[in-house]
Structure formats: structure tokens, C-alpha cells
Design a protein around this nucleic acid. Structure first.
Lengths: 223, 223
DNA sequence: CGACGCTTTGACAAACTTCAATCCCCGTGG
DNA sequence: CCACGGGGATTGAAGTTTGTCAAAGCGTCG
């Protein structure tokens, strides 16, 4: 864990003035803001920190997580290149965000983006991202509330493969992160993966490389 | 179950023109839109229905729920007077909404509200409500992913009492709805309630009337 | 090659669910 | 007013799923 995780606001204001006004918001995102590098497991922002910054993954991956007083941890989601994150809160972040691997993050001040892109484009961009977020969180609620361990793992593998648009995927996280996302233990996750492999629905080469052999069967197992 | 749950768009356009422009958005809400009555268990909108309407509880209460192909049900949340709901989706609703009791709902077309209140006020209103929604959903994720049955029930009772700002509350839902919100079975919910009563932290008079005797202890049990 | 960290596996324990019976409240009708 | 009936709630006993603890396996990186 490396030290400096806090982001100075002065930094952003400086950068925010640079790009021309009224460019399409998606472009603006790339042009304004500060790129920051984070080492694996470094914190991007903390639980209960104020939430006036927006973040976009440039490369690498991010997890958001919430920790209970006794150490139990729940992961809220994973974010990959081009995903916006950090908009999940009203006033303060309910989840912390940490680097899943070494990664590069674009950080920008929400108010600066709004000023640069225009209120309308800003609302469209952030509103859409927030809706997607809510959507995924609601899927997560169903998964955690009503799915069995096997269904959870199957759902997870499908979701990951869908995002990568590919049936052969390298998992960007270890078993503990999967478990904390799925509301299970690493042992249960491991057992379910073994079980899925034994039915030939999936196939692992090493702990992180897998391939979906029978997507239909896996989708059926997911629900 | 009463028949007509669909809302005609023509109805809204007619009403939408009525209120004067640029009134504070909160007021506008009450003045425009259509009031509709729903009987207990009647559907306000269905899972996968398109989501271009906004809803506000006038009186009574609403639950949102998602049902899996084999009948397992997950409740997403409960909504009480003055709560906005129905904004939880991007394109289509992920959850259905049903009347928990006989109730009256204000229905309005999002685009009409936007036109009447102004884009800015609209974004503030809907954005705030969406953020609150996301916030509560994230709490729900932690509850479902990492809390024990006892903690879930304790969290639930506290949340309900907080919303009512009162230590003596009448539950608006039965055990099945509580169970489907908490990701448990009615039997487990019942047992946990009995257990909480035996420790004198709460007290029940009938299945739906309860009072919190020791809020601190209950809060400690909730996490 | 050896050590460390992560993953897998096994045996056992705990938490929660299932199934079944009983209870209790509450409204209805005699 | 009281007996009756019915739906939801509670309780109990047994079963299943998942968690816990411990050991062994595997891979990667010095």
C-alpha cells in the first residue's frame, strides 16, 4: 500500500480551464482532468469521503468496497477501462475505491466537467452512468438475496465474459475479491468453480484464466 | 387484483399543461400528473416495462420486486408517502412495483415534468432521488451480502423506525415481504423477531405493531 | 531450488431452510 | 355475545447449504 491517495482540488481547477468549451462530453472527459497512477491495492478514495470528484478508468481495474466494523467486506462492483465510477454516492461515498491492479485513472472535478461540457451534456453523461450503476446494483441485490452459491458464481463469470465480449477471459481479481463480491467465502467460490469445471461448462488454465465452453448451460445455471 | 394498471400518455399531456411554468419543482409535483388509486397487491408497473413515467406515493405504501423464473422473489425497496419511485431503471424497469396496501399514487410523465419545472429543477429533483435510491440499494447490498439473519432483521426494524421518526411503529407489510426484502424465509424472520423480543430490545403487540425499547442495543445488533 | 502467497480440498460445525404442525388474531355469521 | 373459520405467524425437528478450520497443492518470483 502506497501512501498518497488524496487528490488536491487545486490540481483539478488548474487543468479544468484547459479544454475548449462545448466539445462532446465523451471527448472532454479524455481531455480534461488529471491522470493519476495507482498501485495495486492503493485507495483511490475512502469510505465516507466526500464525493465531488468523478473518476474514469484509463487502464487497469478498480473495485469498490465497504467494510463493516468487524472486518467483513462487501465489494460493490468492478470497473474497467472507460467506466466512470465514484458517482455512486449522494454526499459521501458509501464504498471506498481501490486499485485492483496497477492502474491509471482520470480524475476530474464534477463541477469543472459540468462547466466545460455544459449542464445538458453533463447530466446526460452522469445520469446515464448513474442509471447503469443503479441497474447493476439491482442485479447485485437479486444475486445476493436470492441466488445460490453456484448461481452466483455462474452469473459472475457470465457478466465478466459479457463485458469483455469474449469467451476466454483472464480474471482481473483473486478469489477473495470474487467471494466478497458474491457474498461467499473463497472456499465456496473455489468449490463452485471446481464443480462447474467438472460438468465441462467452463475450463480453467491456472487460477485466473478461464474459458466458457457452454454459454447456454452457464446462463441456465445463473438463473 | 383490479384490472387497469396502465396509464395513458394522453392523460398526462393534458394535465401537464395545467400548472404554471417555473414553480418550485416540489410543488409542481403535487399539481401536475394524475392521481391513481391502486388496491392492495395491484401492480403499478411491471418488470421489464418501459420506464418513462415517474411516480410519487400520496398515501399508502409501495414495494418493488423482481421475480426469478422459478418464483423466487427479491424485494428492492419500500416506498412511503412523498417518496418518488420508478426512476430505478435506465430503459426498462428491472423491478415491478406493487401496492403494499390500498394506496393513491401520483403518476407523471418525466418529460412533462421536465418541461414544466425546467431542466435544472428537474435534474435536481430526479438526480437527488436517484442518488438516494442508489445509496439505499448499496446499503441493501451490504445487508444481503454480509449480514447475518439477526443483523438483517435488526437493520430493517431500525430503518423502518427511522423513516417514521418514531420508536413505536406499525409495519405496513407482512412477514413474506420482509423475508423477500431481507433475503431470508418467513420462518427465519419470525425466529429472529422472537429472539429480539426475548432479549427485550423490541416488543411486539400483534404481528405488525412493535416498539423499540433499546435503540442502541438494536443498532449494535444491526452491525 | 526454496519460500511465500494464493488456491484447492477435506472434515466438521453452524446458519439457515424446509416441511409440518399448531397457534393466534380477526372478521363473520349464528 | 360467542362459536367458527381462515390466513398469516410461530414453533419444532430434520435436512441442506454454506462457513470454518486445517492441511496440502500449485505457481511464481527471488
Amino acid at each position: 500500500m502506497i501512501s498518497s491517495t488524496k487528490v488536491s482540488h487545486a490540481q483539478h481547477s488548474r487543468q479544468a480551464a484547459a479544454p475548449p468549451l462545448r466539445t462532446p462530453a465523451a471527448d472532454i472527459l479524455s481531455r480534461m482532468g488529471v491522470r493519476m497512477a495507482f498501485a495495486k491495492d492503493e485507495e483511490v478514495y475512502g469510505q465516507d469521503e466526500t464525493a465531488d470528484l468523478l473518476y474514469r478508468v484509463v487502464h487497469g481495474a478498480i473495485r469498490t468496497s465497504q467494510v463493516m466494523s468487524d472486518g467483513r467486506r462487501q465489494i460493490g462492483g468492478f470497473y474497467f477501462p472507460d467506466d466512470l465510477f465514484g458517482l455512486e454516492a449522494g454526499e459521501r461515498h458509501r464504498f471506498a475505491a481501490e486499485a485492483l491492479s496497477d492502474c491509471e485513472i482520470l480524475v476530474l472535478k464534477a463541477s469543472a466537467l459540468r462547466a466545460a461540457a455544459g449542464a445538458e451534456a453533463y447530466e446526460r453523461l452522469v445520469g446515464t452512468a448513474t442509471n447503469r450503476e443503479l441497474d447493476r446494483t439491482q442485479d447485485h441485490v437479486l444475486l445476493l438475496g436470492r441466488k445460490t452459491a453456484c448461481e452466483r458464481v455462474a452469473s459472475f463469470l457470465i457478466a465478466i465474459a459479457d463485458r469483455r465480449r469474449c469467451d476466454a477471459v483472464t480474471l482481473p481479481m483473486g478469489r477473495q475479491d470474487m467471494a466478497d463480491y458474491l457474498g461467499l467465502t473463497i472456499e465456496t467460490v473455489s468449490r463452485m468453480l471446481t464443480q462447474l469445471q467438472s460438468t465441462l461448462v467452463i475450463e480453467f488454465a491456472g487460477a485466473r484464466e478461464f474459458r466458457i465452453n457452454n454459454r447456454c448451460a452457464l446462463a441456465r445455471l445463473a438463473d
